[in-house]
Computed example of a mutant assay.
Amino acid sequence: MLRFTANLSLLFTELPLPERFQVAKQHGFDALEIQFPYSLPAEQIADLLDQQDLQLVLFNVDAETLLQGGEGLAAAPEKRDQFKAAVEQTLSYAARLKPSVINVLPGCCLNSQRLSEYQATLLENLAYAAAAFAELGIKTVFEAVNSHDMPGFIVDNGDKMLNVLKQIDHPNLFMQYDIYHMSRMGEDCAGFLSQHLDKIGHIQFADCPGRCQPGSGVVDFASLFDIIASSNYQGWVGAEYRPTADTAASLDWLKTYAVKYRAV
């Protein structure tokens, strides 16, 4: 099975967010992701989805200033209460929008002497989130982010994700596997996907280097998509890349693979 989503935080950004829903549908997407949807009321997002007969598959728990160089919320020992408040916010959106999965970004440790504290806090917070979202029947995922683009990210490769998963051992916690980030770390994405798809709740992709559309870099998407399509993976595969030009011009990959896997 292979089903693609458009990440509206990176695609169709030529338009204001509310206008991206219709354009994504027009270009062949039936499902969406939004990194952080909280700039719009949940009811407005629900209306936009209904108008276009779209599904919102995934969004993230708020990560404060992580994307601006901060440490985020999920691992910071002094921000446990803020993280729980962010989970409550996400629960209110999730109750209305009914995503398949919610992503928790582990965040950064900017003081290496405190790494063990941050790692312990992350385990605590991920367990809390997994239990909270289980009440709504929504999977919790967390992802590794490459430490070249985001120095200090405390989960930056596949082995670290597996270790976190093993330590928490919660039935509602899964990995989110990002092909761009793991390619950037030099990992064998084909090998990891072949071996661990049963532990993966969501997949995202961009080409590497550059984090642009498939065909702009060196990633062998034909092989990776074949591995996913021929497996028992039941989740979605999210296009989370930065188009080299306007988004519509970057979608040749969708025309190719949507046809190829339509009957899979």
Results as ranks from 00 to 15, higher is better:
residue 241 Y to A: 15
residue 180 Y to N: 10
residue 191 G to K: 05
residue 7 N to R: 13
residue 15 L to N: 03
residue 29 F to V: 09
residue 94 A to H: 03
residue 30 D to K: 09
residue 34 I to C: 07
residue 11 L to F: 07
residue 201 G to W: 08
residue 249 A to F: 12
residue 174 F to M: 06
residue 158 G to V: 05
residue 194 S to G: 06
residue 17 L to I: 08
residue 84 K to Q: 02
residue 106 P to T: 07
residue 111 N to F: 00
residue 173 L to G: 15
residue 222 A to I: 00
residue 206 A to V: 13
residue 226 D to V: 07
residue 121 T to V: 05
residue 218 V to L: 10
residue 137 G to W: 10
residue 101 V to L: 13
residue 172 N to H: 13
residue 95 A to Q: 03
residue 52 Q to P: 06
residue 31 A to N: 09
residue 233 Y to R: 14
residue 78 E to T: 15
residue 241 Y to K: 14
residue 240 E to N: 02
residue 73 L to W: 04
residue 255 K to I: 04
residue 127 A to K: 07
residue 234 Q to R: 04
residue 263 A to G: 01
residue 251 L to Q: 01
residue 121 T to N: 02
residue 90 T to Y: 01
residue 154 I to P: 01
residue 249 A to V: 10
residue 115 L to A: 14
residue 12 F to A: 05
residue 219 V to Q: 01
residue 188 D to C: 02
residue 49 L to W: 01
residue 137 G to E: 10
residue 153 F to M: 13
residue 9 S to P: 04
residue 40 L to K: 00
residue 1 M to I: 13
residue 205 F to V: 12
residue 56 L to R: 08
residue 135 E to I: 08
residue 47 D to Q: 02
residue 34 I to Y: 04
residue 75 A to S: 13
residue 135 E to M: 09
residue 192 F to L: 11
residue 19 E to C: 00
residue 86 A to L: 12
residue 91 L to W: 02
residue 17 L to E: 09
residue 77 P to V: 15
residue 111 N to R: 00
residue 172 N to M: 10
residue 135 E to N: 08
residue 118 Y to W: 09
